[in-house]
Design a binder for these strands. Sequence first.
DNA 1: AATGAATGAGGGTTCATTCAT
DNA 2: TATGAATGAACCCTCATTCAT
Lengths: 226, 226, 226, 226
Amino acid sequence: MANSNRKDNRKNEIIDAALKVFSEKEYQDATISEITKLVGISEATMYEYFGSKEDLLFAIPGKITAEAIEFIEQILPFIRGAEGKIKAIVQNYLTVCQNNPEYTSLVMLQLKTNRNFRSTEAFKIIRKGALILLDCIKEGIDDGTFKSTTDPYLERAIILGTIEHLCTRWRMMGSPANLIEHGDRIVNSVLHGIVEKKDARRVSLHLELDDETGDESAPSDAPDKK
Amino acid sequence: MANSNRKDNRKNEIIDAALKVFSEKEYQDATISEITKLVGISEATMYEYFGSKEDLLFAIPGKITAEAIEFIEQILPFIRGAEGKIKAIVQNYLTVCQNNPEYTSLVMLQLKTNRNFRSTEAFKIIRKGALILLDCIKEGIDDGTFKSTTDPYLERAIILGTIEHLCTRWRMMGSPANLIEHGDRIVNSVLHGIVEKKDARRVSLHLELDDETGDESAPSDAPDKK
Amino acid sequence: MANSNRKDNRKNEIIDAALKVFSEKEYQDATISEITKLVGISEATMYEYFGSKEDLLFAIPGKITAEAIEFIEQILPFIRGAEGKIKAIVQNYLTVCQNNPEYTSLVMLQLKTNRNFRSTEAFKIIRKGALILLDCIKEGIDDGTFKSTTDPYLERAIILGTIEHLCTRWRMMGSPANLIEHGDRIVNSVLHGIVEKKDARRVSLHLELDDETGDESAPSDAPDKK
Amino acid sequence: MANSNRKDNRKNEIIDAALKVFSEKEYQDATISEITKLVGISEATMYEYFGSKEDLLFAIPGKITAEAIEFIEQILPFIRGAEGKIKAIVQNYLTVCQNNPEYTSLVMLQLKTNRNFRSTEAFKIIRKGALILLDCIKEGIDDGTFKSTTDPYLERAIILGTIEHLCTRWRMMGSPANLIEHGDRIVNSVLHGIVEKKDARRVSLHLELDDETGDESAPSDAPDKK
DNA sequence: AATGAATGAGGGTTCATTCAT
DNA sequence: TATGAATGAACCCTCATTCAT
C-alpha cells in the first residue's frame, strides 16, 4: 500500500506538471521533456507511469471531472424543481472551470476536439455529466415545468454550448473574467427566453382577472406571431 | 490579368487541397507533402504561394467566411424584426456549415482554439459577423422586442455557443446529421425559452374563464410545429 | 557596341551588388535573390550574365586586382632600389585594400581560402602580382642590397603574410583602422629587422681574435648564414 | 567517473570525425550525416553531445590549441632571451600545425575567418597564445635586445601573418611540405632583417675609431631615417 | 534581354520512445 | 524504481538553377 501510494503520488505529480504544460501550449508543441523537468524526473520515468504522451494527456482531466460529477450527484437530490437543478449543474460546471483555469483550457481548447479522447475513461465521466443534465431537462418536461414540445437534446446543446463558448472565450481572451456570476443569468435566459410578452388581447384578459402578471409569468405566445 | 488569374487558380488549388487535408487530421499531423501531392506540385511550389504551413492554414477559411458574411449583409436589410434577422443569420451560418463540412471541421476543431488565428484577416471577418449578430440583438432590445434587461453579449454567446456546439458534434460524431433544420428551433428556444407559463393561481383563473387554454394547444408550442 | 556596353553595364551592376552582399556574409549565406534584388532584376536574369553563383563570386575581384597590378607595373620602372620597389608594392597593396574594404573582405575572408578560386582568371592576376614582388626581392639579392643567403620566397611570404594578417584583422575587428600608414613600417621592419646592433665591443673582440665565430656568439648577422 | 569517461570518449570520437570532415570540405558542404556515419552513430546522437552543427565545429580546436599553449607555457621559463623564446613559440606553432594537418586546415581555412568563432572558448585560448608572443617581444624591447622603436604589435603581426600564410599555403597547395624547418629561418629573417650590412670596411672603421657605437648611428639604422 | 514559375535536392533539427543497467 | 544513452522517423523550409515565354 505504501508502494501504491508512492506510485500514485508520483503519478499525480506528473499529471499536475502535464496539466500545466499542456494548458499553456498545443499538445504537439508540448514536450515530455518539459513536463518531466518540471517534476524533476527523467523522461524515461514518465513511461513507467504512462504508456505514451497521449495517455498522459488523457489521464489529466479524470480526477477533476470525476469529483465534479460526484459532487453534483450528491447535491442534486436536495434540490427541487428542474430549473433549480439545472442552475445547480451549470453553477457547478462554471465554478469548477473558474477554479481550474488550466483544466478548463485543456478541456475546452484541446480535449473537446480530440477524436481519440472520446474513447477515454475521462470522456465517459463527462458523458455521464451530460446525461445528468439531460435527465433534469426531461424531468422538467415530464412534470410540466417545461413545454412538452421541448427538445431536451437541443436544450442541453444550448446550455452546454453556451458554457463552452464562454469558457473558451475566457481562456482565449480573458473575458468574461468571472464565469460564476453568469450561471443563473445563462439559465434564466435560456429557460425563459428574452422575448417581451405583450399580447394586447390576452393581456387584457389577465388584467381583468389578475393584476399580478409580471415578467416571469407573462404569456409566452408573442414570439410565434412572426 | 491572365497571369494573376493563373496564380490565383494555383493558389486556390492549394487551398482546396489544404482544406481537405487539414480537416482530416490535426494541423501538426498534416504534411505539406500530402497537400502538394494532392495538387500535383512540388513542396517548394507551395512555398511560392504561401510563406509557411501556418500561413496556408490561415488562408483557407478566408473565402467561404467572407462570402457568408457578405451574403448575410445583403439579405438583412430585407428582413423585418430582430427575431427574423437573427433567424436569418443563424440559418445562414448553419447552411454554410452544412454545405461545407470540411470548412466546418477546420474552423470548429482547429482554428477556433488556435491563438495565432486571432491575428488573422479571416478572423477579422468572423468578428465582423459576430458584430452583425450583436447588432440585431441590440436592435431587438431597443425596439422593445426583447426585454430591456437582456444582456446582448450573453445572448450572442448563447446563440453562437449553441451553433458551435452542434457543429462540433456534427463533425466529431456525425450527429445531428441535419444542421439546417435546427436553425429556427434554436432561435425559437433561445428567444422564447422553454418554461411553461402557467401559474397555478392564474391557471385556475383561466380555467374558469377560458377553456381554450391547454398545455398542448398553448400558443407557446407553436414554434416547434414549424 | 551599344549592346555590348549595355551588357557590360548590367554585368558591372550585378558584380557591384554581389561584392556588397558577399563581403557582408559568408558565400553560403548570401543568396542570389539578395543580390538581384539590390540590382532590381530577377534571379533568372543573373544567369544570363553569369553561369552560376560561384562564377559570379569569382568575377568580382577581377577588375580591382587587374587595375592594381597594372598600376604597380607602370610605377615600378621609375623606382630605384629593391627596397623602394618593395615599399611601393606594399604601399599600393595596402592602399587598394584601404580604399576597397568590401573587396578586401571578399579576398581575405573568402577567396583566399577557396580552393576553386585558384583556377580562376582573377587568381592568375594575383599570382602575377606576387611574382612581381618576388622579382623585386630577387633583384635586391642579386644586386647585393639583400644578403645573398636570403630566401626570396620566404621573404615574400613574410611580406604577404603580414599584409594579409593586417587586412584580415582590419575587416574582422576593425583594427588597425589605417592600413596605409603601416606600409613603410612593415617593410622597414621586415627588411632591417628589429634586433639592436650594438656591440662594437663584441665585434672588435671577434676581429681581434678569430674569424671562426660560432653561431651563438656571432654578431647579429650570423644567423642568416645558416 | 566511468560514466563521464564514456561520455567524453564518445564526445571525442565525434570531434575527431568532425575534424576529418570539416577539414576536407567547407563547413556548409559538410553534413552531420557524414560525420556521424564515420563514428557509427545516429545523427540524433550527435545532438545529445553538441547543441548544433556550429557548436560541434567550434568544439574541435579546443583540445589541440589548449595543449599547445600549455606546452609553450611550460617550456618558456627555461629559455633565455627574447629571440630564443620567440623561436620556441614559432617552432611550437609550426610543429603543432605540421603534426595536425587537419587541425591546421580547419583553423587556417575556416575558423580564422569565421566571425562567430571569435566568441568561442577556443578562440580565447588562441588569444592567450598571441599574448604570450606579444609579451616576449615586449620583453626583448625592454631588455634592449630589440630596438626601442619596435612596435611589438606590428612585429607580432609579422610573425603570425607569416606563419598563417605558410600554413595556409601548405594546406591549399601542399608547399612548403616541411613547416618545421622554417621556424628559425622565419624568426631570424624577421628579427634581423635581410638588408646586407655592408661594409666590413665600415665595421673595421668603427672598431678602430669608436667602441661606443650607438643606436642611431649604426649602419643598419639607415632605413629608418626616412 | 528578361523573367515568372516551378522544382530537385537536401539538410539540420526535434522528440517520443526504447532498453539495458 | 529510475534513467542514461541512443535513435528512428519525419518534416519544414531554402535556394540555386532551369526553361518556356
